[in-house]
């Protein structure tokens, strides 16, 4: 039972990050490989506020501000000038932004691992076992965020415009939709989700370092592809699935050494059986 809860926590974290990948891919048609490093930046923002004895909520707000600002800045300065460039040029640029953020973190904070305690390690008895307060917060907030995001996209005018831009950018412009605004908004939302992810990730790992974003970044990207890149429910399901599989695998003595291999093996199997991912749609190429 506690393995399942921990798995759902990691799943929620991966889902939040995967949403950032999948929304940016769906709407801006690019893979933002710097997304993991946005999480790292958020983690350092939390580290700074907590080191200064700031409250956890203040730390979360700081992370949201830092992540959103970095997401918007990278879109405006690095990706928007390449809007009509080849996808490969954009991909390389995103990798460049990723290294830039990691190097900046090294300059400001050096490359040492530093311990962070987000919440005191308290647990409450539940389901015949004990569950940490941090996990409960993670589960509750991840659920709320995913519900709110789904409602935002399904029910609001701007959410509908995001779907329109994702499907046909030219036709969306003909509706009077400002595509640059929608893409910037997507980066802002994805980065704000990453800020929440960085808080929940720190609750579990309690360490910051400049390469902190790499592993959750690549796992969440895997989750997004498993779910079907570009699909929002796909990112949620893919993330949770990956988190649960990872936690169950690493809690079993026999499977534990192979955990990462199992996760990426799952990716390969899914890509072989269903190349568009669980929720992906086959799209006809428009001529």
């Amino acid at each position: 039972m506690d393995t399942l809860i921990l798995g759902l926590c990691y799943g929620g974290i991966y889902a939040l990050i995967a949403l950032g990948y999948t929304m940016v891919y769906g709407i801006a048609k690019m893979l933002n490989f710097a997304h993991g490093d946005i999480i790292m930046a958020g983690a350092y923002a939390i580290f700074v506020v907590l080191s200064a004895q700031g409250h956890v909520i203040l730390a979360l707000l700081a992370a949201i501000v830092v992540c959103t600002a970095l997401g918007l800045l990278s879109e405006r300065l690095a990706y928007r000038p390449l809007r009509s460039a080849s996808p490969l040029a954009v991909l390389i640029t995103a990798i460049g932004v990723s290294y830039l953020l990691q190097s900046l973190a090294q300059i400001f904070f050096d490359s040492q691992k530093r311990p962070v305690t987000v919440l005191p390690p308290e647990s409450v008895p539940m389901f015949g076992t004990t569950v940490s307060v941090a996990s409960l917060w993670t589960l509750a907030l991840c659920t709320v965020i995913m519900v709110v995001l789904t409602l935002f996209i399904k029910k609001t005018r701007v959410g509908c415009a995001m779907l329109a831009v994702s499907e046909d950018r030219g036709a969306a412009q003909l509706m009077g939709i400002n595509v640059n605004f929608i893409i910037a908004l997507t980066f802002a939302i994805g980065s704000a989700l990453a800020a929440f992810a960085s808080l929940f990730y720190l609750m579990q790992t309690s360490v910051v370092e400049p390469t902190l974003g790499a592993m959750p970044g690549i796992k969440a990207f895997t989750a997004a592809v498993i779910g079907g890149i570009g699909s929002i429910p796909g990112a949620m399901v893919g993330g949770i699935l990956l988190g649960v599989i990872e936690t169950f695998s690493s809690s079993s003595p026999a499977l534990s050494p192979y955990t990462t291999a199992i996760e990426f093996g799952l990716l390969i199997v899914i890509l072989l059986v269903r190349p568009v991912g669980l929720f992906g749609k086959k799209r006809r190429e428009k001529v």
């Binding site: 509908c160 779907l163 499907e167 030219g170 036709a171």
Partner: peptide
Amino acid sequence: EGRRIFGEL
């Protein structure tokens, strides 16, 4: 040309 309705909506 080609209508370009949003076919997934």
